[in-house]
Design a protein around this nucleic acid. Structure first.
Lengths: 149, 149
DNA sequence: TTTGCTGCAAATAGTTTGCAGAGAC
DNA sequence: GTCTCTGCAAACTATTTGCAGCAAA
């Protein structure tokens, strides 16, 4: 159930204005792609999609804008250790993903609950689930009690 | 509930023998550390712990052995996009983790179920849970039907 | 003796950064 | 006009790899 890409796009632009950030054509183009986030694109893919409209556009600019949006909370980063991070500007909040280890496709499953997850995923997506990864990130008790740092 | 480190160590050695791989002192030392996996060590940490016993030991050797154990299914790799992957040779199967984003501590929570996870985690570990990551990895329908590749 | 392992150093690859000019406001 | 952004190229960093010598079996 993806959010309406246009309202996501507007939300991102609004956030940019609220922070007095400039609306350059490149930045807006990246925002537009991320607001759809079809297939959870990576930086390289975003860059490729913009090559026609912006022949001189550099990868660095894509990186910088994606990171900017992420820092604004408007993009969810799916980090992978073997490079090729992927981004979701349509649902910029944590949610499960199903990743094809072969073609690198990434889709969002609809999970009623998180019980019997693997079989639920398999039934819904047709994936053959090989493994999963579930991490919680937070501040450990020791760090909570130390002068934040 | 960590498994008995010694039996894990023996299991790794046994697997090595079964594959006609050589039991070098360096390899055995890495296996020993991983069989405990206290704190889910990273490569750098493993290397540091072996500097005393093996002053000339190179990082490359640690990398090679960790990857070897991983390929044998004896080590679970916790990959992080920002480098510094972590390893678990004590419970080499997928399971949830709780990661402190500040000090990088990683612990294994006991989860009765995966419902109300965040609060369950908080109650059990004392962590202030900020976010989480749940990925399923598998083969998508399209890839299942294409000549495996 | 044979085969695989280690140490070293160089190569890789995704990402980040310094800088000078261009452009949004 | 000011201040940020962009493009380019160089820098970074975790990890991988080629190679020659060394050691396990």
């Amino acid at each position: 159930m993806p959010m309406n890409p246009e309202s996501r796009y507007d939300a991102i632009l609004q956030k940019l204005r609220a922070h007095n950030l400039k609306l350059t054509p490149q930045r807006m183009a990246v925002a537009k792609i991320l607001s759809r986030s079809e297939g959870h694109p990576g930086v390289e893919r975003i860059h490729a999609q913009l090559k026609d409209a912006f022949p001189t556009m550099s990868l660095a600019t894509v990186y910088r804008n994606v990171m900017l949006f992420k820092s604004l909370g408007e993009v969810l980063e799916l980090g992978f250790p073997d490079g090729g991070n992927r981004y979701d500007g349509n649902k910029p909040y944590p949610h499960p993903h199903v990743v094809c280890v072969q073609c690198k496709a990434i889709i969002d499953p609809d999970l009623d609950s998180l019980k019997d997850m693997a079989s639920e995923i398999a039934a819904e997506t047709g994936f053959k689930v090989l493994t999963h990864r579930l991490d919680f990130f937070g501040i450990c008790p020791k760090c909570q009690h130390s002068a934040s740092q």
